[in-house]
């Protein structure tokens, strides 16, 4: 499977992704085996509020990058249902124009309720696509949850998409993505009110000059009239060409990744131990009957499970 994926066989690539995403036995061995051959792809994160036309924008620029000769991978992340663990993943609807394009591979991914783990899983999928010869990988998320923000923040380049008519869409940006954006795109600019959004964002950026090193550009686009798309492509391809060694080679980033893998692994180890060890039944009863409290029980369990 690994060999076939290396040759960019679509089906092998898809299967490899499932294997790792499902954390099937041996997934880590796969990642270990391919790690050395990754790190050259350019990762573009795209986020923004629902209705901002992210997917259409992604579809548009992925196609143009594809036409330039780049092999593209797209990861479209949508939330899982917290109740059933299932999901309806619908981003492909907006990408139908490129769904059979030979240079483009699209993969929908559910958050699967993995606290922090989504970030790692997405990183793994990026790496597999990288290994399978994708020059550029685009990750698209709905910019609402902390998880999704973390996912795009692990990209080389972050595109934040907003649009006129999104109500308080600019207000929503303030909530934390502001700092990680490399470019602000006001999409659907054929609608009324685009200029207002541009000036609101610019004003906000001006005020935050102390916290960001470089003020990111704010541009208007429309996937319908194609206004601004050329400008956007110009900025994007300049970045792609200039892009040097990726996050792979930055100490801080590698440290963060090891920590993140460790965290996820530790949590599942602890969960496993606890469930094989009476599933906390006894301890919970103590709390419920007023004989103990959640803090003491947690301390007790850490001692017992992790031996700390």
């Amino acid at each position: 499977m690994i060999e076939a994926a290396r040759k960019s066989n679509e089906r092998a690539l898809a299967k490899l992704i499932s294997h790792v995403e499902d954390r099937k036995p041996g997934w880590k061995d796969i990642m270990k085996a391919i790690y050395a051959e990754t790190g050259r792809t350019c990762v573009i994160g795209v986020t923004g509020s629902p209705g901002s036309g992210k997917s259409s924008l992604v579809s548009e620029f992925a196609k143009q990058l594809g036409d330039m000769g780049y092999a593209i991978g797209i990861i479209a992340v949508d939330p899982s249902s917290p109740f059933s663990g299932g999901a309806v993943l619908g981003d492909r609807i907006r990408m139908r124009d490129i769904s059979t394009y030979k240079n483009i591979f699209i993969r929908s991914m559910a958050t699967r309720g993995m606290l922090g783990g989504l970030c790692q899983a997405a990183r793994d999928v990026v790496r597999i696509m990288d290994f399978a010869g994708r020059d550029i990988v685009i990750i698209e998320t709905v910019g609402v949850g902390q998880d999704e923000i973390e996912v795009v923040s692990a990209s080389d380049y972050v595109v934040l998409v907003t649009y006129p008519g999104g109500g308080d869409s600019v207000q929503a940006i303030k909530a934390g993505v502001m700092e990680i954006a490399d470019i602000f795109v006001v999409n659907k600019c054929d609608r009324d009110g685009a200029d207002v959004i541009v000036s609101e964002i610019s004003a906000m950026l001006d005020l935050s000059t102390e916290t960001v090193e470089k003020i990111p550009p704010v541009i208007k686009t429309s996937t319908f009239t194609k206004e601004g798309i050329d400008k956007f492509m110009e900025i994007l391809s300049e970045f792609i060409q200039k892009k040097e060694k990726g996050l792979h080679f930055q100490e801080e980033h590698v440290r963060q990744e090891v920590m993140s893998i460790l965290e996820t692994e530790m949590v599942s180890l602890i969960k496993e131990k606890i469930s094989s060890d009476g599933n906390m039944e006894k301890e919970l009863k103590l709390i419920l009957s007023g004989k103990s409290d959640p803090y003491s029980v947690a301390d007790e369990l850490i001692k017992r499970v992790a031996g700390i």
């Binding site: 259409s56 309806v88 907006r94």
Partner: peptide
């Protein structure tokens, strides 16, 4: 006019 986008669930 452009084309209508199918609905996302």
């Amino acid at each position: 006019f452009g084309e209508a986008q199918p609905m996302k669930l």
